[in-house]
Design a protein around this nucleic acid. Structure first.
Lengths: 175, 175
DNA sequence: GAACCTATGTTATGATATATCGCTCGCGAT
DNA sequence: ATCGCGAGCGATATATCATAACATAGGTTC
């Protein structure tokens, strides 16, 4: 096992299934769009999906080299990532210079990300109220929105719950 | 003149005044907080305020070297920036790896940024409806928010207006 | 089969950021 | 006064993230 973040449901979910599902769906989408999900791009998508947390370009590069024995240089990875982003199969987390798989690549969306500082899991939202609030403030100022970056850092429900549990078991403050 | 972004009111405002005001206010705030706005930190703050757009760490480094003739290395700049961020005198724009002066450093706030792709000017908002929409979605999922990054890229009102004006003067489509 | 396009390989470099060590200066305690 | 101490900063080295530019391979079109 690695130390990378498990799935949104914790360590207990079938993550292999997540990956396969994401890659299969990506295959369909690319075919429909008439773009080529080449073996390299498919593999990079798999590697981004290695966890539900953000994955760095150089981590992917290392995996390509060590797991696949493939010769690879940064442009190899960045080009594949660029393609996957254009197709909205992955997202870039700006505040971490890293990438996560998109949980709903079928249609365009302005997404928001909840990023856990403890476990690293990224939860992708697609909340209209946030999008609307931003759009409204922007348009009030005559600003034409091209894209929104909303990245929220904090502690996810699961980690907060387990922290609370361990606190009650071994209280930090006797008072 | 340089090509850096002018003020929020365009090229016609007294930007020197902006800088002086920001630095003076920073001085008061630091004194009140009992932290030291040293000459270097003050100078770096000035340089961040050179424009109303995001300024990169290495641009600041160059200015320190060329304008001040000072010997400086990256850590010099990053340490000063770190201090200024801690004191909320500047903000980091994650999606650009760059920094902008804070327009209201007196009190803590969750801010949002409208970043113009044309002129580079960053408009800082402090909109409760956006903050609340994010907080609500997060808490619904048991997520404890530490901080929000909201960066909106697009075209500012001023640039949109001038683009519209030049379009009507020389229409792109004869139809 | 020549011209061409897309994807990838390869080399080099650019851009951003941090670790670490050591010096200096101000300041409080003795 | 001088010692110890911590904050700030200089300096060197290195880590990390990203792209420019050119070469090569394989398929498609004509």
């Amino acid at each position: 096992m690695s130390s990378i973040a498990p799935g949104p449901a914790g360590a207990d979910h079938d993550h292999q299934h997540c990956i396969e599902q994401a890659v299969a769906l990506a295959g369909e989408i690319c075919q429909r769009r008439g773009v080529r999900l080449t073996p390299l791009r498919r593999r990079v998508l798999q590697l981004v999906w290695k966890s539900h947390g953000p994955v760095g370009a150089y981590a992917i590069l290392d995996w390509l080299r060590t797991e696949d024995g493939r010769s690879a240089a940064p442009p190899t990875v960045y080009r594949a990532l660029e393609f996957l982003i254009e197709q909205r199969l992955i997202h870039r987390i700006e505040s971490m210079n890293a990438f996560v798989g998109c949980v709903d690549p079928s249609r365009p969306h302005a997404a928001q990300y909840l990023i856990c500082r403890k476990c690293g899991i990224v939860t992708e939202l697609e909340d209209q109220s946030i999008t609307d609030a931003i759009a409204q403030q922007a348009s009030q100022r005559g600003f034409v929105v091209h894209d929104q970056t909303v990245e929220v850092h904090g502690i996810c429900g699961r980690c907060a719950a387990s922290a609370a549990a361990s606190r009650s078991a071994t209280p930090a403050h006797p008072a």
